[in-house]
Amino acid sequence: MSAAASTETVAPLLSVEHLRIVAAARRREDLLVEDVSFAVHAGEFLGIVGESGCGKSMTALSMLGLLPGPNVRASGGRVLFDGQDILTMGGSSLRHLRGNDVAMIFQDPMSSLNPVQTIGEQIVETILLHEKIGRERAWARAVELLAEVNIPAAAQRARDYPHQLSGGMRQRVMIAMAIACKPRLLIADEPTTALDVTIQAQILELLDRLRRERGMAVILITHDLGVIAEYADRVLVMYSGRIVERAEVASLFAQPLHPYTHGLLGSVPPLEEEVDELVAIEGQPPSPGAWPSGCRFQPRCPQSRPECASWSVRLIESEPDHAAACILHEHGETSHAD
């Protein structure tokens, strides 16, 4: 557990405040993300978990000013990195931010790599974009970076093209490229979803090692609660564009507060024990534009009540560092204001 997670006095590296993202299509505007607020501190490992369409990837893209505009845009809130609002940044400050301060890796490394350029050249390009050094020195750095992400025979592999590498190796190359300019925050969006479990374990260990060695903060976006349990310090659970639970990882698994989190945990068959039937959540996540009023989980919630449909949704902190957006926890609200 990183020390930064609990020291609220230290200014966070990144703070997202009331972020709202909409998608405009023809004459309608659909909400994708609403009222999302959280902070990430230096060296912290934050997990964001949720199913497809919950807004986790859109939230991540907004941190790099990479929302697929002009139809998808942030229509409210702020994303502050070191006190500067990324949402209002212009082209040149954004370019400086990306790579130098914030870097990102994606699920499918093949679509992020240039197929007709060697991986060494691609890393060199990244380095030269941000630093004024000679090509030869940049190449040496690229080889060092490849070695740092555990690519064997790095000097030779640097001359390989992406298709000559396996999926796991390609993801390592993406990580090498992402850390080339020593970013302070690395966002990893489902980085291991396409990989086999044994390779997934290697990649996650690598990310965690780089975080420790470089004091870099990591935001890991995943649908896999197991990955969260093993690596994250803190977790955000997202559902239909909102954060429904925010917790230290230990308390999330010890005592999940939101019925959705409960359902997610019940949906995963345990590896060490046997259960007869999984506690599945009925129905499916609603798509953006079709979100119900009030609590968006209420139509699928086993504990829903009539009031849920008109409840003004907000995160309620029922103990320090553990909050859930559920009417069931409303009674404790006055003592721990959110």
Binding site: V197, G226, V227, A229, E230, L271, E272
Partner: peptide, 12 residues
Amino acid sequence: SSVPAPRQSARR
């Protein structure tokens, strides 16, 4: 042992 388990007890 490569499978990350969604349990707190199972921290690697």
